[in-house]
Computed example of a mutant assay.
Amino acid sequence: MKIEDRTFIISGGASGLGQATAQELVRAGGYVAVLDMNDDNGAAVVSELGADKARFFQCNVTETESVAAAIKGTVAWVQETGKPLGGVIPAAGVSLPSTMLDRHNQPLSLPDFNFVMAVNVTGTIDLVRQALPHLAAAAGSPEDGERGVVVMVASAAAFEGQRGQVSYSASKGAITAMTLPMTRDLSRFGIRVVTLAPSLFESAMTSLMSDKVRKSLEVPRRAGRPEEFAMAARQAIENVMLNGTVIRLDGGMRMPSKL
């Protein structure tokens, strides 16, 4: 899909991997609707990218009304600019590490588990499903009839989750598992689905790790950089042959069983 003069919805777009993706798509001539909870960060991203190329929408992906409002605002903006929707990138995510039983013999917190699932799984599917009717209504590409792309974000933890990552691994495993059936559902509408599964990348989440932990995971060389994730997201959008697949973006890293 051609990025230039198309609009892309990015949740978690005001920080980390989502922000880097917004920057990359604007460099490629695209427009971005940045969805995030942090107003200050959102305003800063729009200031950097330019108000003509980016629009911020305050959004809590765990609240379907908030997602609906952000989608409605994006559609109104698209009507103003005349730059049709090209895709949706649900990049908002959280992690609350906890073992199934802690040292005091207390079980995993169910509210914490539900929160991670609400953001990472329900928040992903809700944003995608609410954007889809607008993607499906877009004019198809004259070359192949393509109307849009969904780029979801999983994690290496979906394949080799570590100790204390039951909730996070479950949420990212769900993203990988829904990739193919979603592709099959949407193929007749000219909408592709690609999932990226990064390992250790520089982000707000990984910044909380100690230097010792980070060093133990930097195999073979170092953590990934946000711009490298963004490059992969751009390729997922532009390369029509990427569809129905989960791409590991890990530099050969394989997570150990515990930190």
Rank of each mutant, 00 (worst) to 15 (best):
Q58C: 09
V149Y: 01
V34D: 09
L259G: 13
P198K: 01
S257F: 13
E65S: 15
G50I: 01
E228T: 07
M152Q: 09
A233T: 12
S210F: 06
G224P: 08
S47N: 10
P181K: 05
R147Q: 11
S141G: 11
M152S: 12
G18F: 02
A22D: 05
P142D: 08
A131I: 03
T195N: 06
R103S: 15
G140V: 07
G164T: 06
I10D: 02
V46Y: 02
L110P: 03
M117T: 11
A223I: 02
T99G: 08
M117H: 09
G73L: 12
R234P: 02
V149K: 05
Y31S: 05
I71H: 02
A233C: 14
V166P: 00
A91W: 05
I191E: 06
T21Y: 00
A204R: 12
Y168T: 05
F159S: 14
D39L: 05
G82C: 13
P181A: 02
S109V: 11
E65I: 04
T183K: 04
M1Y: 09
M231P: 00
R234N: 08
V128W: 14
V46D: 02
C59L: 09
G251K: 08
D211C: 00
A230R: 02
E146Q: 14
A236V: 10
S207F: 00
A197P: 06
D52A: 15
N38W: 00
A170K: 06
G140A: 11
Q58W: 04
G252A: 08
G12N: 02
A76K: 13
M255W: 14
V116G: 01
A92I: 03
W77Y: 14
M178V: 14
W77I: 11
P181Q: 10
V32W: 00
P111Y: 03
A157Q: 06
P90V: 04
P107N: 02
G86R: 03
I237E: 04
N114S: 14
S141W: 07
S98N: 12
M178F: 12
D112C: 03
R254I: 14
A70H: 11
L132C: 06
V32C: 05
R234C: 07
S47L: 09
N41R: 15
R214I: 06
N105T: 00
A91N: 10
S257W: 08
N120E: 05
A156V: 15
E228G: 04
A118N: 15
A14I: 10
F159P: 04
F56L: 06
L96D: 15
A68V: 10
D185L: 13
P133H: 06
G18R: 01
A204H: 11
R254L: 14
R234A: 11
D144Q: 05
F113H: 13
S155C: 06
